[in-house]
């Protein structure tokens, strides 16, 4: 059994929260750079270069990438050969609170009914999975509300099929439009039940842009088809029109009830901020 101190987890999360808000992942940056070079007209090209310039300013550490520094979504993979010296959830939340405070990040968590701000950007949204091994893997996403608000879930009928899934995804992306800060990464969960498909959609956004679904060839095919269709919508960078509407489409699937076809579409803005660290 490997002892991992809660103090260590808190420190790691604190650092991750600050880093995620100042550095875009390389794959996102490079993909936008390629897209900027490929756009054939001035407006979308200019917008993409401005977004890249924003990243260069943010990585100096004074200003976060976006004023919406998000809510902290944390995926924990806890190895069965690890033990912690306290409450792992408290340790994560302590790290989130410290990161948002010390990093001068915006506190955006509020009571849903009174709308009173919790003042600490906690509680974090924490998902835990038990795995084999002596490690704890922490994957963190700081997710802004602009794109999250445009996400949607629908319980389709099995008769709706692949076409029905596509129609729902396209409708959701169209509705997201300029408000959700395109170019997007589109995370899609198909199957399971209501909460599982939403979680699959969120989880898929942690994948690298060039990582297609390797365990389900039908899902990989759908990723590719939807990617092309979404980029034909001409929403373009920040909705001003253009060829780049999606940077990637990620799909995760799970078996579902014979009577159901749950689909969740989680929209991620161009500031796709996430990090992974293994202790």
């Amino acid at each position: 059994m490997r002892l991992i101190k809660c103090e260590k987890i808190t420190g790691v999360v604190e650092r991750m929260v600050i880093d995620a808000n100042h550095y875009l992942p390389y794959d996102i940056f490079n993909c936008m750079k390629d897209a900027a070079d490929k756009e054939t007209t001035k407006k979308p090209k200019t917008i993409l270069y401005k977004i890249l310039e924003n990243h260069k300013i943010a990585k100096k550490g004074t200003y976060p990438l976006c004023q919406d520094t998000g809510i902290a979504v944390v995926f924990l993979e806890v190895g069965n050969e690890t033990a912690t010296d306290g409450d792992i959830y408290k340790a994560v939340n302590k790290g989130v609170e410290a990161g948002y405070s010390k990093g001068f990040l915006r506190k955006s968590m509020a009571d849903p009914l009174t709308r009173e701000n919790t003042g600490t950007n906690t509680p974090a949204i924490i998902h835990t999975k038990l795995v084999k091994g002596p490690h704890i893997k922490i994957s963190l996403m700081t997710k802004g509300a602009g794109a999250e608000n445009k996400s949607a879930l629908k319980m389709l009928n099995p008769s709706d099929g692949i076409e029905g899934i596509k129609k729902f995804v396209i409708e959701t992306v169209k509705k997201a439009g300029a408000s959700a800060c395109p170019p997007f990464v589109i995370g899609i969960g198909i199957g399971g039940n209501m909460e599982t498909c939403a979680l699959l959609a969120k989880k898929s956004l942690m994948r690298e842009l060039d990582d297609y679904n390797k365990s389900d060839k039908n899902a990989a095919k759908l990723e590719n088809e939807l990617f092309k269709e979404i980029n034909r919508l001409n929403i373009g960078p920040l909705g001003f029109g253009g060829d780049t509407t999606a940077l990637g489409v990620k799909i995760e699937t799970k078996p579902c009830h014979i009577a159901s076809l749950p689909v969740a579409v989680n929209i991620q803005c161009h500031s796709s901020r996430h990090k992974t660290f293994t202790i």
Binding site: K50, I51, P64, C181, L238, C269, S271
Partner: peptide
């Protein structure tokens, strides 16, 4: 008017 969404640092 629209400002540049997601370019808060800039």
């Amino acid at each position: 008017f629209a400002a540049i969404g997601g370019a808060g640092a800039l």
